[in-house]
Write a protein that binds this DNA or RNA. Structure first.
Lengths: 244, 244
DNA sequence: ACCCTTCTGTTCGTTAGCGCACATACAGCT
DNA sequence: AGCTGTATGTGCGCTAACGAACAGAAGGGT
């Protein structure tokens, strides 16, 4: 499920923002792992055994409604952490956490995390700030899912994913996308085809590439811009990425 | 906007759960007010000047998407607090907070609240737990808004409102409801008419009454049951109410 | 070279909800 | 009694998305 890493060159914003000595204290407990595409890190209602600090990879937070598709409510990349709910004293995840873009992350046992968290003000502050941003994201996404058409949401989603993976090309099937956007797979096909016809993206058999980022931003709903603005305070890394 | 209260008989679960002495410490800063229907307590992106501990009244948290209706993502009643985002070190509300069921609440200056919060572990713990439940609610609601039809969502909404106001009858226009559910007013009319025809509710000119709670639960989506279960840990008060 | 699986594309009838415009109805005021 | 404003109801054409079923198309393995 998780493969050990060789080179621990993993950049995570939360950890990077900590004072040297706090980071040093955590270091022995941080295990470099390679998150594998489609792995489920948490199921809703189940205990969170480990927390994860993603590097250039992407974990989706999904709400699961019985008898329906899943629906993405939030994304975690290197700007955040998977398992923030623990900072609220919770033990169980309210959502499913699904690895959606494979890549390196730092893993830490929940018990160790909580022990460090208790004494480390800097970590508390960083995670509080992140949690606030995440809540805002979840609320925004809720509105987006309600009001915007699939094509625009797909465009937004591709851009957000690109930003977090720091790459304009990544593996992604339409089947997978359908459970992110909460629509039928065929709905994704139709929207994806449309975007491809416009020359904005290109894809085949589980690989998607963004050809025209600016064009895709036009095709995306306003939520993408809002998202960027919203995360600006806590981490301006995206601004760099997305103009690249 | 806010009328001073005479009788301070306001029951709020967060405050009630605090140790006597912590509560006593807060008391001088808690101002009894009567929240007025349709008042906006926070706008998204604006500072939260005060926090509120609702009694038997109801504040809706709405996400606002430009050029669209609003959409309710969460409800705050006497089980919670309006302004929890402050506990995360934020100053601005990510959502609109709208008084949706008038009634008594305790108001507190943000500065005072933060001062108390800093030293009061019990309050921190209570609010963390509440925040967790709220996040779960927001995520669940996101799925509900995406997958369930208006009629079922309306039924759920009426039940949740009843629970928080502790009353089967309350003022509520369809216009207002439309911006909660994120649908056209006419859409509400159609669903409300259907529920009325089934003898589950009765309404006219801004007053709604629930006639058959059990029947309404059948008409509601499964989210209502999930909601009840989800809040069970932090506050079992609803179980009492809803069987009444 | 073949099969088999996975991924993508298409078609078709159906439906929930939209936007718009208009119709009724009740309530309070003068 | 009549007027006015707010609340509710109806009708209609339209669209995004659904559910289901099926058709190609591109690897990967043996």
């Amino acid at each position: 499920m998780l493969e050990p890493m060789t080179a621990p060159e993993i950049h995570n914003n939360i950890l990077a923002a900590l004072p040297r000595k706090d980071y040093q204290q955590m270091l022995p407990d941080l295990v470099p792992v390679e998150l594998v595409f489609a792995d489920v890190l948490y199921e809703p209602g189940a205990r969170m055994r480990d927390v994860y600090f993603p590097g250039d990879c992407l974990v989706s937070l999904l709400t699961v409604v019985e008898n329906h598709l899943a629906l993405e409510v939030g994304m975690v990349g290197r700007e955040g952490m998977v398992g923030v709910a623990l900072t609220l004293g919770a033990e169980e995840s309210p959502v499913r956490a699904l690895v959606q873009g494979a890549g390196p992350a730092l893993q830490m046992k929940t018990s160790r995390f909580l022990a460090v968290l208790r004494d480390c003000k800097a970590l508390q502050r960083a995670l509080n700030g992140y949690l606030y941003g995440l809540m805002a994201q979840i609320s925004r996404t809720a509105g987006c899912n309600r009001f915007h058409i699939v094509e625009a949401r797909l465009a937004k989603w591709l851009l957000m994913t690109r930003d977090r993976l720091a790459s304009a090309e990544f593996p992604m099937t339409q089947e997978f996308l359908s459970s992110m956007l909460g629509v039928r797979r065929v709905g994704v096909t139709e929207s994806a085809t449309a975007l491809q016809r416009q020359g904005l993206i290109e894809y085949s058999r589980g690989k998607i590439r963004i050809l025209d980022g600016a064009g895709l931003e036009d095709a995306a709903c306003s939520c993408y811009a809002a998202e960027r603005q919203g995360t600006d305070g806590s981490n301006r890394s995206y601004s760099v990425l997305t103009t690249a």
